[in-house]
């Protein structure tokens, strides 16, 4: 892979948010770093060469999990292992806690942060797909204050998000799961923990009679940016979901996706994998039993 050592850069460990704004203002090639589990490999492969790294690791303002009646707020520095185990997250956003168990391997989950994964904007990553399905809101912060961006407006293109220069991701906010909520997650990779070849994160609401009130499915590795599966909400609304309905809806969604070929295989193969993962995640969410 042509691995070498990171190129030279300056480094500052921010003691407070003003340190961050000052550093980002002073150097347009500066990048922020938290757990570094995506950025440091990119530095070692020399795919990135920032002039300055601003370490956010000591900023208490970016930590913590707060639960109110309707909103769960998770600080950007919350590590993957904490998303996996935190009792409030497991209760209020079980899809996100499940997604965390699929992120890489234990050693990486001990360092990597939720905010880092989201701001990195990799379409093959678990958290962006789960946050799209959960209809999350990203809380961006700059010297001017906080700005809220819907997850659907956040992921723009290859590793490109709606964060502006001088802005960092401070937290994500999620609607709290209700008794009517249900979810499913499925992912395929050659080795568990490797980057997904395809995957899907599903969050849905059901009415008392079992019919679907709303459904959203974030897809992994389906395009340049993390994205939602198209057409699900209208097709499912008010209907009792069964395998036949899922099969038809997934076929229609796939017809509107163009994942392209990559190192994992041809475009057709990748579409098949994404479709199968979407079918499984939907079947799991609507409790239609294990899929062989």
């Amino acid at each position: 892979m042509g691995s070498v050592k990171p190129p030279p850069f300056d480094y500052v460990r921010a003691a407070n948010l003003d340190d961050v704004w000052d550093a980002l203002d002073a150097d347009e090639d500066a990048k922020v770093i938290a757990g570094g589990q995506s950025l440091i490999p990119l530095l070692s492969l020399r795919f990135a060469s920032p002039s300055l790294l601003v370490d956010l690791g000591a900023l208490g303002e970016l930590t913590g999990v707060q639960l109110t009646d309707s909103v769960l707020r998770i600080g950007a520095l919350t590590r993957h292992c904490e998303v996996e185990r935190n009792a409030a997250i497991r209760a209020a956003a079980p899809l996100l806690a499940e997604a965390a168990t699929w992120v890489a391997h234990p050693q990486i989950r001990n360092r990597g942060t939720l905010g880092g994964s989201v701001a990195h904007g990799d379409s093959a990553a678990e958290f962006p797909a789960a946050l799209l399905a959960l209809d999350a809101t990203m809380v961006a912060r700059s010297r001017a204050g906080e700005r809220r961006v819907a997850a659907t407006d956040f992921f723009l293109s290859y590793f490109t998000t709606a964060l502006e220069p001088g802005e960092i991701l401070a937290a994500v906010e999620l609607p709290v799961a209700r008794s009517s909520s249900t979810w499913g997650f499925a992912e395929f990779a050659r080795r568990r923990g490797d980057y997904a070849i395809g995957g899907a994160a599903v969050q849905a609401e059901r009415d008392a009679d079992g019919s679907c009130r709303s459904v959203r499915a974030g897809l992994l590795a389906a395009g340049p940016a993390p994205c939602l599966a198209p057409g699900l909400a209208d097709a499912f609304a008010g209907r009792v979901v069964d395998r036949q309905l899922i099969a038809g809806v997934v076929d229609e969604a796939l017809a509107r996706l163009a994942p392209g070929e990559n190192v994992h295989g041809s475009a057709g193969y990748r579409k098949d994998v994404i479709g199968e993962m979407l079918r499984r995640a939907l079947a799991s969410a609507f409790e239609l039993g294990e899929v062989a």
Binding site: S3, G36, Q37, N110
Partner: peptide, 24 residues
């Protein structure tokens, strides 16, 4: 591998295993 894939360089940081090649 020196980019966070193989796990050979794992050390224990404050009680938790981490990859030392993926940390400054």
């Amino acid at each position: 591998c020196e980019h966070g894939v193989c796990g050979s360089c794992t050390v224990v940081l404050d009680g938790e295993p981490v990859r030392s090649c993926t940390m400054l």
